[in-house]
Design a protein around this nucleic acid. Structure first.
Lengths: 132, 132
DNA sequence: CACTTATTTAGAATCATTATAAACTGGCTA
DNA sequence: TAGCCAGTTTATAATGATTCTAAATAAGTG
C-alpha cells in the first residue's frame, strides 16, 4: 500500500494502526492543523476498530520525529500539529482560536542578523496574531 | 511607592502581594523570561512572607492582560512569560531549552502580504529554533 | 514455525493550570 | 473613624492534557 514503504523507510513498522492514522493524516487534498483530541475524533469517524489514545500519542510523536508532522508553536492548553511540513508560517485568529496557513511567499524573506556562538538556525517560524 | 500608581492606573488594587511581585518582575536591570514555577521560586527567595501559588497565577494573568507581561508562543509543558513587552522576537535553543531575545532590529522588517477579511494584525512574533 | 523486538493497550500517574468558596483587605462614604 | 462592599488572597480540590507502566499482541527474521 501507499504508506507501507514510507513507514518502513523511516524504520517504523507499518502496523494496522499506523497505516490507518496515515490515511487520516495524509490521504487528503489539503494539509490541516489538529490537536490530538481532534485527531482522535477524526479517527473514530473514519475507521471501525478502536485505536487507543496512547497509540495516537505515540504515533503522532513518532511521525513528528520522522518529519511527517510539525508542532505549531503557539500557546494553548493543547498542542497543535500540522500536516504541512514545508517551511511556512501561521495566522492565529485570537477570537475564533483558528490557525490559518501563511505560505513563505506571503511573508517577505526574513533575515536574522544576530548570531549565537556555536548554534545553527534550524527553523524560523512566524506567528501572526489576528484580532477583529 | 514605585508601583502603586502603575497598578492603580490600570485598575488593579495595589495589594501587598502584587507590589512584591512587581518588585521581583520589574525592579531589575534587564528584562527576563520565566515560567510560573521559576517566578514562584524567585518570589520565595526574595520575600519573607508566603504568596500562594494561586495568587501568582492570578497576578501574572492580570499583569498580562494589562500589558505588563507577554506570553511567549512556544511549545513547552509550561507557559513562558516575558517581562520585555516591546515588540521583539526569540531564539529558542532546543538543546538547552533556553530563550534568548532577538530585538526587532536583529530581524529585518517583516511584510505580511496576505490579508484576512475583517481581521487586523495584532502582533507578529518570530521564533527562531537553534540547534548545535 | 519459533523467537526476538517493536508496538499497542487500558489504566494509572503526573503535573500545570483553573475553579471554588471562605477569609481577608483596600478604599470609599458617612 | 467605623462600616461596608467589591476586589483579592488563599488552601485545596478539580480538571485535563500528556506521559508512564507493564502486560498482551503483532511484525520481522531465520
Amino acid at each position: 500500500m501507499k504508506y507501507i514503504d514510507k513507514l518502513r523507510n523511516s524504520g517504523l513498522r507499518p502496523t494496522k494502526q499506523r497505516l490507518q492514522i496515515c490515511e487520516v493524516l495524509f490521504n487528503t487534498e489539503k494539509t490541516f492543523h489538529f490537536t490530538i483530541n481532534q485527531l482522535e475524533q477524526k479517527i473514530k469517524d473514519s475507521i471501525d476498530n478502536k485505536i487507543s489514545l496512547a497509540t495516537v500519542y505515540n504515533t503522532v510523536h513518532a511521525f513528528e520525529k520522522k518529519g511527517y508532522l510539525k508542532q505549531i508553536p503557539i500557546n494553548s492548553n493543547q498542542t497543535y500539529f500540522d500536516t504541512n511540513v514545508t517551511d511556512h508560517h501561521h495566522f492565529y485568529d485570537l477570537k475564533d482560536q483558528k490557525l490559518i496557513d501563511l505560505e513563505n511567499s506571503d511573508v517577505g524573506p526574513i533575515n536574522i542578523k544576530k548570531k549565537i556562538n556555536g548554534k545553527r538556525i534550524k527553523s524560523v517560524e512566524v506567528l501572526v496574531k489576528l484580532e477583529d
